[in-house]
Design a protein around this nucleic acid. Structure first.
Length: 437
DNA sequence: CTAATTT
């Protein structure tokens, strides 16, 4: 039945879509919390991509990516994302649950490829994340032959002041997008119909990219659909988000710690930097960890550690903001294709980066904020690089001294999950863990 | 120099 309907070109029509939504969809799942302006209006959930009456070429792209059925967040978010009139959304869902596909699907559904100007705009906090989102756009739009996309990132395409660009979708980092839209005027923010903020909490946080993201947002038309996605929003940021986004549907996980269920967390107590390095070197010397990411607090620490590990004979990659853009693309590509199994990095890779083979995350330095306090949001994002899509993962925290022990305990209490002690000399412990996970 | 962002 569905297939007959999909082949009908009229199905792109949203009034038909709405009819279908009302007749075929069931109530939303119980572990998501949904807040709306009018809590009495019906809310729908969808169990198949067919039920969304997507354009056939988009549906083909979705299946071509190996997606068979909507993920949990997609079940609830997609009907609202695609409904007419467009609705704004603030969505929270754990790492690796299909947020990117959800908003890319929305952009592709709303774009009109017969109009040769940008209609969808997506902002991400880093260069690597912008590339990753772009890859999802490319795959999902494989059968939309006339669709064009462009990256607005540092070191990317050069533009000329006043010379309008014609891609339909712009993916970029905040500074470059702001330059393109306001300084160079190569596209009109007023013509954007879907605006996506990925990793939205860090994009609007005072200590993050707030200025540039909000300046872009203020240039948008009143009726532009605004979508905010992230795995985490601290209460302040959520409050600000709700003040900035008009009448949003808010979809949140009821329990944050759900996302930690499949990740085993450990700590190793050390007394100095040298000791941390030796403990780390022991771990990597004794066992073959699939693929892993090691997070450091500073660029300097990351390049120092990479050098030390290399000297010890480990093949490692290093990624931080001190690299040139071309180098960054090369490093992430080598890591993705498992040419290098270990990536030593900073918070530049804490969010969003999706490399399926990553089974271990090491916090060589625990994440702290500007004030030197535990940064629980970043912790969750970092260890969320593993255990994606319900797979098991391992997180190892290197603790040196009482201050970092206190930081770890704050994190432990925040998530109400025990972080077990690991003896750095007892490698068998780790091996057993690895087999487990 | 916390990290990221600022073609």
């Amino acid at each position: 039945m569905h297939h007959v309907l999909i082949s009908d070109p009229d199905l792109a029509d949203n009034s038909l879509l709405n009819k279908m939504l009302r007749s075929e969809l069931v109530n939303c799942t119980s572990d998501l919390e949904v807040l709306r302006k009018d809590p009495n209006s019906p809310l729908y959930s969808v169990k198949s991509f067919e039920a969304l009456s997507l354009k056939p070429e988009i549906l083909k792209g979705v299946y071509g990516m190996g997606f068979n059925a909507p993920s949990k967040i997609q079940e609830t978010a997609l009907p609202s994302l695609l409904a007419e009139p467009p609705q704004n959304m603030i969505a929270q869902s754990q790492s690796g649950t299909g947020k990117t596909a959800a908003f890319v699907l929305t952009m592709l559904s709303r774009v009109d490829t017969s109009l040769n100007y940008p209609q969808c705009l997506c902002l991400a906090p880093t260069y690597e994340l912008a590339l990753q989102i772009g890859h999802v756009v490319e795959q999902m739009s494989k059968y939309m032959t006339s669709l064009r996309m462009v990256y607005a990132v540092r070191g990317g395409m050069r533009v000329t002041r006043g010379q309008l660009i014609d891609p339909h979708i712009v993916i970029g980092t905040p500074g470059t997008v702001l330059d393109w839209s306001t300084k160079f005027k190569v596209f009109d923010l007023k013509k954007i119909r879907v605006f996506v903020l990925d990793e939205a909490d860090v994009m609007i946080a005072t200590q993050g990219h707030q200025d540039q993201s909000i300046r872009v947002q203020r240039g948008l038309s009143k009726d532009c659909q605004m979508l905010l996605f992230s795995a985490t929003y601290d209460s302040q940021v959520m409050k600000f988000a709700q003040a900035v986004v008009p009448d949003p549907i808010v979809i949140r996980l009821r329990r944050e710690e759900e996302s930690l269920k499949n990740i085993k967390q450990f700590f190793i107590r050390c007394s100095s930097l040298q000791e941390k390095f030796h403990a780390l070197s022991n771990i990597y010397g004794a066992i073959s960890i699939g693929q892993s990411m090691i997070f450091c607090h500073t660029r300097k620490a990351a390049s120092w550690l990479a050098e030390q590990m290399t000297r010890q004979g480990h093949a490692v990659g290093m990624l931080s903001g001190e690299l040139a853009v071309e180098q960054r693309a090369a490093v992430i590509e080598r890591f993705r294709s498992a040419k290098e199994k270990v990536l030593i990095t900073t918070n530049v890779s804490a969010r969003g980066i999706d490399v399926e083979q990553v089974t271990v995350v090491v916090n060589f330095d625990l994440p702290v904020n500007m004030k030197g306090e535990a940064d629980c949001e970043t912790y969750l994002h970092r260890i969320g690089r593993t255990g994606r899509f319900g797979k098991r993962g391992l997180a190892i925290n290197m603790v040196d001294g009482s201050r970092s022990m206190a930081i770890m305990q704050v994190i432990e209490r925040h998530f109400e999950r025990t972080i077990q002690k690991l003896d750095p000399d007892d490698i068998d412990q780790v091996e057993a863990l690895e087999e487990d996970s």
